[in-house]
Design a protein around this nucleic acid. Structure first.
Lengths: 217, 217, 217, 217
DNA sequence: GATGAATGAGTCTTCATTCAT
DNA sequence: CATGAATGAAGACTCATTCAT
């Protein structure tokens, strides 16, 4: 809460019980442990599912005691949300970086698709987590928040394209989601299943989004 | 459970001589009960998730005892698989029916998209179940089987289109999945969230799949 | 909740999850089990303390599975509150019964003290539970409610006595608590530790409350 | 822990050669820390109960690390016993001091009651701890020891009073506990709940113990 | 002396499944 | 067929205590 160094924060704890995660200052070693836990858990959650993966399994996988888990995370649920948040943030960052230098709407969309595909290939596990999260009451909201922000970026670009008369004049919201749908789905089928490399799939996705199925007359 | 290899476990279970599910002949009333259970479970699984929904919750929701559940299904897992199977079968049936009368490849795709969208709107809950199923080891295989069959249908049509030179000459497998991706995703976003009616979204999906984003010159 | 027989109660469950205890209709056998659990738990809680007594210990003591406990009680905490409630109710009932036939204030007090002592002797365990309950945030409120009602009864009698000029004209609230204090404490020391029989201690308590220490001149 | 009889376990614990608590010589600062811990723990134990108060909560409340706690106390249990011992000692000291100058038995009792009440008011928290301690196997013995000594003092005085024929000739042990019961209970109800000041309650307690309820003829 | 990190036995609780009636 | 009751393995989480630095 308070970023004011030297504050009385620690002595004026009103609530009972132990420090919640936000307050905890971690050492270098601590941050590494936390990262290890998140990465290992991400892998396991993706491989076996969130529920079938027990906390015991996670700590055993790292060869540490059960308490370690709860030193770094308030609960299994909180860990999952943390993974979700971080992944969304990272994806967003990658996309923005890919787009910022382009000024042409079409080019922006192309680069957006390509960077998504690239990111997907580098974070195979995460896709499954997103997918799962959307199926459970507790996690879906955390997803929506991030999802909407991402969609809005695309919508803006599509609107630019329509204004410049390079994109068909159709509902930009639907078009945006169509683009996201193609990208996500192809990434899932081809990249995650490792049937094609990300670049090739990206080429196809771009072509499909721009031209559709029909041959250009 | 049974360590006795080759035992008659499933067919001769107890003094009742209870039969395995497949063999069981249900009365009219029995079939209704079974249906009720499946429908209620589908709803709950979709709303709250598979794991958070307990068998107790399902039987209480119907105001019956636990025994009823295990009379009709071998396990919670089996119930879920049953729902999955039935839904895939039904979707497939709907799509085939929509396509069979068309002879033009483009029309077939169009009608496939429209019927998918329609079916999605009428089975909102099921989509969540598919999504969840794909994230868990135990259920993913059941999905893949059905999924591949469905994709193959589309692939065949696309190949026809390419042969007839009305569809771009690109990898038909990728094109097929792109179409499925758009349809699925738009259904999920707009139809399930009830933001648009199925017909309108179908129109957009068809347009996007055929023409892409760009204005036709 | 609804005492209306034939209501739709069971089919209109809005909340998820299983039935809470209040709704559950128990069979004869069920009620016996519940009673067994409460009695055994009372004994153990009194002997070893609430916290040191685990749910596992309770069910093992009865030779039943862990699930049984949670079939009859929502939680260990709820069980304890239930014991508290029931004991308070029972004590109250005993006292009222002892008093109702007397019309003289002094006699009422005497009989109240005697019945308390008697009840204490018959429910040795419960006193420890009351004592413990008063030391913990979660349980103290449940105690206060019952405690105040009991005190009020005594206060009323004392007021009568003062009005009739047989009791010293002093703050009736304090006098009432003094009487309760003597009774409770003597019961605890002599009756619970089994140093004297309840009747003898009751005689002494009555004498002390009426006459105090000093010799009557 | 150590099955080695007669081992040097307690005095030669580790490479540090750490000493058992009793042997430890504390610096001035050390004694203050120890006192802080005891006072803070007393408050928390009284507010929330012994078990619900964790060691973590105590050290966090003081803004220090866990190691500090175990530097000053062997265990949480030992801390609690220490608090108990100290409080009993202090109470006893106060009572003896109040009584020593009086030579009249009745006056001694009066002053004993008054000093008890006074001490109770100044140590509100401690009463809850005594109460809790008596409900748990591990702590009850520590209480009894002190309790008996205190009761014996009163018994002696009562016997004097009886010999001098100013106190009713009844079982002095019971009379003594009756006096203690009134005092303790009134302190608990009125002083700890802060409904009256200690002096007023003491007046009432003295009157009740000497004269009882009845009007003196 | 002090700290953050780690330990792991032990606790409460859930829930799929089975069974006697 | 149906129910209430029972089972018990498994899971999330707590917390007194210890240890390396």
């Amino acid at each position: 809460m308070s970023d004011d160094p030297g504050s009385l924060d620690r002595t004026v704890k009103s609530a009972y019980g132990s420090l919640s995660m936000e307050d905890r200052r971690l050492t270098q070693r601590g941050r590494e442990r936390r990262r290890q836990l998140m990465e290992f858990a991400t892998r396991r959650f993706a491989e076996r599912g969130y529920h079938p993966t027990s906390v015991a399994e996670i700590v055993e996988g790292l060869g540490v005691g059960k308490g370690v888990f709860y030193w770094y995370f308030d609960s299994k649920e909180e860990l999952f949300l943390e993974i979700l948040r971080e992944a969304q943030l990272d994806l967003r960052r990658a996309q923005r970086a890919a787009i910022e230098d382009e000024c042409d709407a079409i080019r922006k969309i192309e680069m957006g698709i390509r960077s998504s595909m690239q990111w997907s290939a580098e974070h195979r596990d995460v896709h499954k987590l997103f997918q799962f999260a959307s199926t459970e009451e507790r996690f879906a909201p955390a997803l929506r928040k991030g999802g909407e922000v991402a969609a809005n970026d695309v919508i803006t670009i599509i609107k630019e394209g329509i204004a410049e008369n390079v994109i068909r004049d159709s509902d930009p919201v639907v078009l945006a989601h169509a683009v996201v749908g193609v990208t996500t789905y192809l990434a899932q089928v081809f990249v995650h299943e490792q049937l094609m490399d990300a670049m090739t799939v990206a080429d196809e996705a771009v072509a499909f989004c721009l031209d559709g199925l029909l041959v250009r007359s």
